[in-house]
Design a protein around this nucleic acid. Structure first.
Lengths: 161, 161
DNA sequence: AGTGAAGTTCAGTCAAGAGTGAACTTTCAT
DNA sequence: ATGAAAGTTCACTCTTGACTGAACTTCACT
């Protein structure tokens, strides 16, 4: 079972891949496999076909289909066809981290929505509880606003390169 | 099975509790039960004993022990004894959201550590891959720094009240 | 239109993790 | 010191969700 990474099939590179799987996967709310796929693509010189990804990760075709779907959806990976080829290849995007930041913003926005709904459903509660729901709402309002700023700022800092 | 929330045992309040369980629990990397417990405490007029939490959530003693441990550790809930009582009570903290923000900061710091380790392990890779690892490192450096600012700012905005 | 390769879907299997409850330890009032 | 109540631990069960693989669909070239 060859599992090449870049051109270095060492155990080191593989443990790095697995670390990505565990940590980035968890951070993004992905299954471990998606994080590992992200790691492989990040460390690959060239775009990879699904078959290459599959053998690098020692995984099934079905799983690869799902993972590439997730990665493309998240904005971290680009999917395209090389001219004259009938199969897709996948490549880590230069602006991948913008996608991750956007993803965090979306998650926070969902929690803001929950806070709003909670506040709306709790109008007839005693003062203290209403105050708590208000604090929650204020917190997530603050967070969403700041995340938006952060996203703009990060995009800007990259264009300045 | 009485599951009172505040003084309103309606289905509405319970579905709100379950929403907390699903969304906040997920956001904090907790099991659903911890998020539900957080919800009950947030919506309770008075501090609750473990027995009260248990009956509100219709859960086991062992589970309550673990959940209160998580919540106290996260900094969202305070555990103390009322004078003359032999049992602990649990109360949602005024500064609970600071704990959540700190938690996010810690998660991001872990990813920064991963990025550093990845960069260190990838010094002999070709340019393109090294550049990707550098971008990852820069991204998480940026995020940790900004989260720290955010935390300070949020703390400040609360003191101004 | 026909053919084979590429990609997707989905029912089933397997593993990870949440929750339980009984046994155990700690704590405190007497 | 003793005993009852409070709290913790842990082996087990049950649920959830990740991954597989075979059947199916889509696509591009002839």
């Amino acid at each position: 079972m060859p599992s090449r990474v870049g051109d270095d099939p060492s155990g080191d590179a593989n443990s790095l891949i697995d670390d990505f799987g565990l940590h980035i996967g968890r951070a993004m709310g992905w299954p471990p496999m998606a994080g590992r796929a992200a790691g492989v693509l990040m460390l690959s010189e060239n775009p990879l076909t699904m078959a290459q990804l599959q053998s690098a990760l020692n995984a099934s075709k079905g799983s690869m289909s799902e993972m590439t779907r997730l990665l493309v959806l998240s904005g971290t990976v680009r999917r395209f066809k090389q001219p004259g080829s009938r199969q897709f290849v996948y490549e880590w995007r230069d602006d991948a981290w913008i996608g991750c930041l956007q993803h965090q913003l979306e998650g926070t926005t969902d929690l803001l929505a929950l806070a709003e709904s909670a506040q709306a459903r709790g109008t007839d509660l005693p003062d203290r509880q209403r105050a708590r729901l208000r604090e929650m709402h204020e917190f997530y309002t603050f967070m969403v606003e700041r995340f938006e700023t952060l996203l703009g700022e990060y995009k800007g800092s990259r264009q300045a390169d």
